[in-house]
């Protein structure tokens, strides 16, 4: 292969578990690095996508304004965009807040909660504003592929990336599809 595939990754409203699972491919990461180079990613701390990435892996759904901007940047600068993990695909555990109003959630966390001193809702302009609900990524931008699991196993991520890079259909075999 003449040129390495450029892969960008980010974690939105997730727990970094999917990134941990990506690193969990162990020594296969050395094989992977023969095939890909990491563009913007928390793994290398590059903050913005340089040029166009071939593949973007999104962990987490959209819970605040910053998530929205990052997801938009990824869509604009990635040829193939992938929702990786339950939170990106369905909203996941963070979307459990969708059953309550944002006001109720904030008041429960910062005003009425147990053991709170100096009760007030944080409003520093540096803190990104929360969205009304947590959104699965495909409800915000077009997503090309979905890699389920909480997190997807290292084997599922490996299968997906190597098949995609080889130009084949990266659908997972049944035994690698998990939602937990």
């Amino acid at each position: 292969m003449s040129k390495k595939v450029s892969v960008a990754t980010c974690s939105l409203a997730g727990c970094f578990g999917c990134h941990m699972s990506l690193l969990d491919i162990d020594e296969r990461i050395l094989d992977l690095l023969q095939l890909v180079e990491f563009n913007r990613s928390p793994i290398n701390d590059i903050k913005h996508i340089e040029g166009m990435a071939d593949v973007g892996l999104i962990e987490g759904g959209v819970c605040n304004a910053e998530n929205f901007h990052v997801l938009k940047e990824f869509r604009e600068h990635c040829k193939i965009l992938v929702s990786m993990g339950e939170c990106a695909i369905t909203g996941g555990i963070p979307s459990m807040r969708n059953h309550f109003t944002l006001k109720d959630c904030l008041e429960e966390g910062y005003i009425r909660g147990v053991g709170i001193e100096n009760a007030h809702i944080p409003n520093d302009p540096e803190i990104p504003l929360l969205t009304d609900k947590v959104y699965p990524c495909h409800e915000v931008v077009k997503i090309d592929y979905f890699l389920p699991g909480c997190p997807p196993s290292a084997d599922a991520i490996w299968h997906f990336l190597t098949e995609l890079i080889a130009g084949r259909d990266p659908s997972l075999p049944t035994e690698l599809i998990k939602y937990d």
């Binding site: 369905t90 909203g91 979307s95 997503i143 890699l147 599809i177 998990k178 939602y179």
Partner: peptide, 15 residues
Amino acid sequence: AYDLGMQDNHFPQLF
């Protein structure tokens, strides 16, 4: 859903 290869929910979540 595993057996039928469902990898995403496709539709908007109704919550």
